Computed example of a mutant assay.
Amino acid sequence: MTVFYIALGMVLTLAVLWLGRRFSGFTAQTPDDYAQDTQQFDIRRDLNGPLICDGVIYGPMGRVVSRFTGDFDVRWDGNRGVMTEHFKYESGGEQHRYWELTVGNDGAIRASAPDLVGEGTGAQRGGAVCLRYRIRLPEDSGGHVLDTTDWMYLTPNGTIVNRSQFRKYGLKVAELVATMRKVEPA
């Protein structure tokens, strides 16, 4: 009977942890949580033209494992956009990526990129944008496919704060925090 109570206790503990994660914190946010914001984030306006990005990546133990800067260029033709990214890592490595983005009249977002598995989906509401997708890491990083949730928040001066979590089998394996801001004309 003792084994039964230990197993039951373990199951209940896991259930409470899962429910806590599901209904509180980063993964529990929805775009509608930000619908009443006075500041309105429109990726066609705020993610447009040349941008500079600075950020860090945290590993599964919460320690910074990488720092980077990025040069982005985003061009829109109506509701369709292309974002090119060139990252430079403190390790000396570089990475080039690009996204194709489509924004619906209701704020829904669809995204594709060569390293995505399937299509990303999301929404913009109020001062926030959420995008969820599955990304395949480069082979030199293990080639793993990670479930990703990106949240971007517009600040009053137009800087975008990006927080992303990467999960494998539901467990957080990395987190990214970055800022993006428009390049000032020379």
Rank of each mutant, 00 (worst) to 15 (best):
V11H: 01
L12C: 05
L14I: 07
L14H: 13
A15I: 13
A15G: 07
A15H: 13
L17I: 14
L19C: 07
R21E: 15
R21C: 02
S24I: 05
G25F: 08
F26E: 03
A28S: 15
T30C: 09
D32R: 13
Q36I: 01
D37C: 09
Q40G: 08
D46N: 06
L47K: 01
P50T: 15
C53T: 11
C53L: 13
D54P: 03
V56Q: 05
V56L: 14
I57D: 11
P60S: 12
M61R: 07
V64C: 11
V64M: 09
R67P: 05
T69G: 07
D71K: 14
R75A: 12
D77P: 01
N79C: 08
N79V: 05
G81R: 06
G81A: 03
V82E: 01
E85L: 15
H86A: 11
Y89N: 03
Y89W: 04
G92Q: 05
G93A: 12
H96F: 12
Y98N: 05
Y98T: 06
Y98H: 13
W99G: 01
E100F: 06
L101S: 08
T102A: 11
G104E: 04
G104D: 04
N105H: 06
G107T: 00
G107R: 02
G107N: 07
G107P: 06
A111V: 01
A113W: 09
D115C: 07
D115F: 03
L116P: 06
G122M: 02
G122R: 01
A123L: 08
A123Q: 11
R125Y: 09
G127M: 03
C130D: 11
R132E: 07
R136C: 02
L137R: 14
P138H: 06
D140F: 14
S141A: 13
G142L: 10
L146G: 08
L146S: 08
D147A: 11
D147K: 04
T148V: 14
W151Q: 02
Y153S: 09
Y153K: 12
L154Y: 00
T155Y: 01
T155A: 07
P156C: 00
N157H: 11
N157K: 12
